[in-house]
Design a protein around this nucleic acid. Structure first.
Lengths: 118, 118
DNA sequence: TCGATACCTGCCCAGATACGCAGCTATGCA
DNA sequence: TGCATAGCTGCGTATCTGGGCAGGTATCGA
């Protein structure tokens, strides 16, 4: 099990075999990146508040979200655009009203986890 | 149930009662902030890689972490300082070697969750 | 005692990001 | 047709943060 890439194979290790275990534990860079990106979306208090409201209350309109969170409309809209681009939420148009809801299962699980101890 | 704060009670709502539900769903601002801060720590690919390695492999030395992740020593040290200040990891000194491990239960649960589908 | 190693810290810079404002489009109602 | 509302977008700014470099401290081996 020599998982250490060639460009750093000459560096001295403390626990050689544990380094290989660690590399295996980290897994694919793309996978790690996907999760860190997901966590980034939850790392902002305003966005997290929006997602908690959507997750626990269900479909909500933009201006209602603005009132509930104390944000102004453009801020809510911009946050939802980010979340929509990431595939976390989806909006359903009904006349001039758009109601958003959480559609990403992984994020929903994280939100449930974070609401469990509240 | 009039949970809407006075400073925005005059704004028009789409679904009035749902706004109150949403405010209740969001919960205390401090609680939301605590979780967004926690997610921030996992939002960086390098830090997440370090935490995954520590969580799944166990105690690891700084230079071994540097080799496993491809980071240089100061970068690893600085990331660990951040995580240590947040109470996520702890280091145990053994001679001139310091081995770190994850000590925060909430973060460990998130890491397990994120390793489950990998 | 001398050198090498393991780790930490302080600085500066480039890149990313959230916020606020002004303005735009589209829908519904009178 | 005129007007108010719901939502979206672009721009400029202030702020934060990760990354690299140089240098410092402590421990181990010769």
């Amino acid at each position: 099990m020599h998982l250490v890439p060639a460009d750093r194979a000459d560096r001295r290790t403390i626990d050689g075999h544990r380094v290989c275990d660690a590399i295996a534990a980290i897994g694919e860079p793309g996978h790690v990146r996907a999760w860190s990106d997901r966590f980034s979306l939850l790392a902002d208090p305003k966005r997290l508040a929006l997602l908690l409201a959507l997750h626990r209350t269900g479909p909500l309109a933009v201006s209602d979200l603005a009132i509930a969170t104390g944000m102004n409309d453009p801020a809510v809209s911009q946050a939802l655009r980010l979340l929509r681009a990431a595939g976390v939420v989806e909006g359903e148009k009904e006349g001039r009203i758009v109601r958003y809801r959480v559609v990403d299962g992984d994020v929903a699980a994280l939100l449930k986890h974070c609401a469990a101890d509240g």
